[in-house]
Design a protein around this nucleic acid. Sequence first.
DNA 1: GGAGCCTAAGTTGCATACAATCGCGAGACC
DNA 2: GGTCTCGCGATTGTATGCAACTTAGGCTCC
Lengths: 209, 209
Amino acid sequence: MNAVEHAYATLRKGILDGTYPPGAQLAEVELAGHLSVSRTPVREAIRRLHSEGLIEVFPNRGAYVRTWTRAQLDELFSVRALLEGHAAALAAQHATDAQRTVMAVLCDDMDEAAAEPTDIQRVAGLNDRFHALVHESSANSLLPGMIRGLIQVPVVLRTFLGYSPERLRISLQQHREILSAIRAHDVPWAESAMRTHILSARHELDASS
Amino acid sequence: MNAVEHAYATLRKGILDGTYPPGAQLAEVELAGHLSVSRTPVREAIRRLHSEGLIEVFPNRGAYVRTWTRAQLDELFSVRALLEGHAAALAAQHATDAQRTVMAVLCDDMDEAAAEPTDIQRVAGLNDRFHALVHESSANSLLPGMIRGLIQVPVVLRTFLGYSPERLRISLQQHREILSAIRAHDVPWAESAMRTHILSARHELDASS
DNA sequence: GGAGCCTAAGTTGCATACAATCGCGAGACC
DNA sequence: GGTCTCGCGATTGTATGCAACTTAGGCTCC
């Protein structure tokens, strides 16, 4: 793997898993030493993470892990509901049979993984793949990239981990409903089901703090 | 101005005004010489433009001005209608009196500038400011940045320049309607008027080719 | 004659050295 | 005692040199 990719992946992972908590400074020389690369690829990785909104950059003063306010997270979920709803609507029109089949398999796998309380991490991974597949099925070349920039925010990813078994069951049921709508080629239903799914998660976030 | 900013601004301008046409290669050494800076800031500017979707980067093979297909432009306008419509809806709820006043002034200025056929460029500038103000008035910290990434595509910017006097009049009238809706705090009206404005522009683009 | 390889030129990727800028603290002055 | 200023340490910003990769051309071999 090339140096930039290595630095980018490691930094991103560190931000998401809390190694670099919100507000922490990302000093170039320190990171370069830690990653065994020079400052150049570190700088490039930092700029890339900045463009994705994961970190803030102050000219001549360094880069810091971005902090999110409650209000910003609410805005984020609103926009996400808008875009993911649109993606689901398009998926209801354009998803291929193969894509529908994989969605069903992912739903089954999630049910299975959810039965084991220790597999939460695995459920989260399958959840990501399910959503990514819906975006991809929209046959729109812009949406996946735009949504990806939204859902990688740490808090969004961690939302899933705090779910109760009951709440998790509801979330998986919502996936089933989205899939049903896409299978039925029912555009408004798909859009609405996805919006419900996202806004429901936002409510959970608000309630849990 | 620092070197990166200089390189970024110059490159971006060159891409938008056609100095670097779609598909053209952006060689680092050549640009560095032309801009009187080293390759380092040029590289950073290129990466930034890449993250904004204006150029494509192939690892080890260079950067090229992005080309847009008809289908991608259609998708772009669809997403834009979605996001700008949402922004208008929020603006109807949150715009301040001062912001509404400036919107009205911008509409007046556009009418004035549109009377002179030579001032098309000025109309385009005022149009940008009007839309940016609506985004800002949404009181949402994510939307302006996301929409900005969409509307800076060369073809989108140039759409305006090809308008007939009659078509231009319609566009300005649509601005007035959006403003009326925002003034009336009528959320669905504002969203709908903005969507109409964007999708109408998309139709114009389709028809003119 | 055609396919494959090999070499060389040109480009990007990365490392390192130097320059510019910022922030903080010590000191002087009011 | 408080405030302003100067200077130093630390960090980012930029330039340049070398390494690695890609590609195109010509050559050899089949």
